[in-house]
Amino acid sequence: MKSLNSIKKNKVDHTLHVHNKLLEIKNVKKYFPIKGGVLKRTVGQLKAVDDISFTIFKGETLGIVGESGSGKSTLGRTILRLTDPTEGKILFHGIDLAKLNQNQVRPYRKNMQIVFQDPFASLNSKMSVQQLVEEPLIVQGRLPKHERKKKVYDIIEKVGLRSSDVQKYPHEFSGGQRQRISIARALVMKPNFVICDEPVSALDVSIQSQVLNLMKDLQDELQLTYLFIAHDLSVVKHISDRVAVMYLGRFVELTTKKSLYQNPLHPYTQALLSSIPTIHIHPGQKEKREKIILKGDLPSPTNPPSGCAFHTRCPYAFKKCFEQRPQLQMVEKDHYVACHLYNPK
């Protein structure tokens, strides 16, 4: 059985040395109105994504981690305009997608795709693999049927399935094979940016490494850029170049993978990393990391705390944390943190 430690390293070094901006997010917010009363008037806002800014460079993998309900998936869907942003800019190749209507966004969708979390729910059970993978080509282009068929066969083989599988239906495949079909459907248009919304969380551990290896190989071969959303810190560590930690709709830390795992600065990041299970191989082996137990639950995004959103659970909170919202700022080289501990005055 393969473990996550068996995942291959990238053949290409996707690091911050690649300074070609592919996607730039500026002050993006996504609020959902809360309706109440007989007349269903808006009585509040659910702040799923609350003023986030970051950049993704060509060829890299940016991982986003956080608890359930932190807004990771909503951020991904907002970037793709599957849901409209409340405020902010989404600059893709310099074009602000937030200003475009759905018809104007459509031509850009062939370059921006998504792999969903659940391969059982994201595939139409009444469509064959041929129909599922070919559908984006029909919607986006006017290729002749024989060219579409060739593209389907090519991408099916690239994701590790057989050409004879194109006539089968989703229920005839295992979970890992279904996710390969989802990946094929996302890549058949040859996009340069793919959002992976927890693509291996629904799979067995023995299958996760196979799918992640596949995604890394495809990234090298097709020159892809990934935004990888996950709650499993081990998965994010192996596939990402940079990692952003998200809490209650906001980024609290953003840095390189090495820096985050070796020197986490935000108290929330430290608590997340301390929760990773450690396997003791030798009897009597001591725990390497001190366990940090957070008190309380994630606050409601309908009524987030004032000041720092994490102060209700932070063991180091002081007066300023209750009053002012910390901004994401660079405290070390390429290491951004939103915490008053690093700017107490």
Rank of each mutant, 00 (worst) to 15 (best):
I195S: 03
I52Y: 11
T225D: 15
M246E: 04
H311S: 09
S164G: 00
G94A: 07
V49A: 10
Q131C: 01
R148I: 09
F57V: 14
S68L: 01
C308L: 05
T225C: 15
S275M: 12
Q117A: 03
R106L: 03
N213G: 07
T15G: 08
T86A: 10
N101K: 02
V105R: 03
K216H: 03
I276Y: 12
D204I: 02
N101P: 02
G76H: 14
E67H: 02
L272E: 00
D204K: 03
R289P: 04
S275W: 09
Y268C: 09
S174K: 02
L46R: 09
S163G: 12
Y153V: 14
S122L: 12
Q324C: 00
L91S: 05
M330R: 14
H14T: 04
M127Y: 07
R148T: 12
T86V: 06
Q208C: 08
E332V: 02
H335S: 01
P199L: 14
V252S: 14
S128F: 00
Q270C: 01
G307T: 07
S125F: 09
E24K: 13
R325E: 14
D50V: 03
A338R: 06
Q131T: 15
K257D: 09
K168Q: 01
K11W: 15
K190Q: 12
R242Y: 05
S73L: 11
I279M: 13
G284A: 15
L254A: 15
E147K: 10
L23H: 11
